[in-house]
Structures are given as C-alpha cells and as structure tokens.
C-alpha cells in the first residue's frame, strides 16, 4: 500500500512538474531546445517510473509507531524554532537549548542533557567564532 501511495504522489508530482515545465517561455531564442525540453523529458520519465510502483509495489515497509512520530514532530518543531530565534537570541543560548532538547529526546538523563547542551554549544562557539574566525550570531538581544 505504501508503494502505491508513493507511486500515486510521484505520478502527480511528475504531471505537475511537466505541465509547469512546458509553460516556460523565454523572450529570445538562444538554443533549439530552450528552457522547457529538459524538464519535460524528466517529468515524463518520472511519470513512467512511478507507474512501476503503482503496478508492482514492494512489500510493506516498517513504519514507526505513534511515539516515534510524536518525537520526530517535536524535534522538527525544535529545529524550526531554532532557525527562527537563532539570530535574535544568539548562537550559544539557542544551541544550548536545542542540543539539550535533542539529547533528552535520545534518552539522556538530566545530568547528561545539561552537560551536552552547555558543552557542545560553548565549545563549538569558541572553536568557530574565536579560533577559526567564523563569525556566529551573538544575539540581537545582547546588541550583537
């Protein structure tokens, strides 16, 4: 079933991609193929391969349980929040929270969670910002 659904989604993607690809227009003629030919070729090929999945699907893969989904969802949310606040609160604080959170997700107890969070963020900040001269955001709230 998974492969059939995947095949269906890929087929839809192929159709959308090909249709969009065939509509590119350039104002001047530079080469015989133009911007549309290659995308149309790719879209057609993808559509054909997706049919194989629809008609000859593999056995069902193993999907993780609801618990995994929740942990992955929370982790992704954390990664996105990290991107949103990075420049505002600065590298050290945001990384400390992110690394601590990830290590707790992977099963660290409180001691290791705090240790890894502080250790990794502070060490990497000084290694890259100070030693290797790769500027990292200090944080707008600190006037950085």
């Amino acid at each position: 079933m998974t492969d059939r659904i995947t095949g269906m989604l890929i087929l839809l993607l192929a159709i959308a991609y090909t249709v969009a690809g065939s509509r590119f227009e350039s104002d001047f003629l530079t080469d015989p193929l133009g911007p549309t030919a290659f995308p149309v070729m790719l879209g057609t090929a993808l559509g054909l391969f997706s049919l194989y999945l629809l008609f000859r699907p593999d056995p069902e893969p193993e999907w993780p349980g609801v618990r995994s989904w929740r942990r992955q969802g929370m982790t992704l949310t954390a990664l996105i929040i990290y991107g949103l606040v990075l420049e505002f609160v600065g590298f050290i604080i945001s990384s400390m929270v992110l690394v601590g959170f990830l290590s707790q997700m992977l099963g660290a107890d409180r001691r290791f969670m705090i240790g890894t969070g502080i250790g990794a963020s502070v060490l990497l900040y000084f290694l890259f910002n100070n030693l290797l001269g790769l500027p990292l955001p200090a944080g707008e709230i600190f006037g950085g």
Binding site: L79, S95, L98, V99, G100, L102, S103, Q104, L106, G107, A108, F112, M113, T116, G117, A120, S121, L124
Partner: peptide
C-alpha cells in the same frame, strides 16, 4: 545522546 545532538549542531 551526546553524539547525535552535537553532529546536528
């Protein structure tokens, strides 16, 4: 739990 978070960072 020490390795992966550090790699991600």
């Amino acid at each position: 739990y020490i390795l992966m978070p550090t790699v991600t960072l």
